[in-house]
Amino acid sequence: MQALIAQVQGPAAAQMLVAYLALGLALFVIGGIGVVLRRNPVVVFMCIELMLNAVNLTFLAFARYQPDQWRTPTLGDPDPTISAAMSGQMMVIFVMAVAAAEVAVGLGIIMAIFRMRNEVDIDDMSTLKD
């Protein structure tokens, strides 16, 4: 696994990292605006998926481009670079699994509400509040 690391340190790598992070931030903000503005629960749900994906992108960006001073050494790990890259990818895998479970349950809830009320507008769903 030692062959993995190509130490290309310097400004180019930092610029790439910042570019990816900025893109992730933009997607996250767009998704957040969608969650606040839209009233169709399915679309709100899709915006949440978009936000999750924006976070995934930042995880992967950090897995590839690792700022040296924030990389915490793991106990008993010979190469912190590899373990950092792996942990970033693992987070993405788990976010995907959580997103899949969330979609299955969430769409089930939307279907159940629709069956009960025959219309779906997120602002009208306040039965629990009233």
Binding site: M1, V8, Q9, A14, V18, Q66, Q89
Partner: peptide
């Protein structure tokens, strides 16, 4: 948060980190 990262040293890991052969054992 993001802009300060332009000025820190950054290491890049090689392309092989994303192959199934690298992820499988870790997973």
């Amino acid at each position: 948060f993001i802009e300060p990262m332009l000025h820190v040293p950054v290491s890049v890991i090689g392309d092989e980190y994303g192959t199934p052969q690298a992820i499988g054992p870790a997973l």
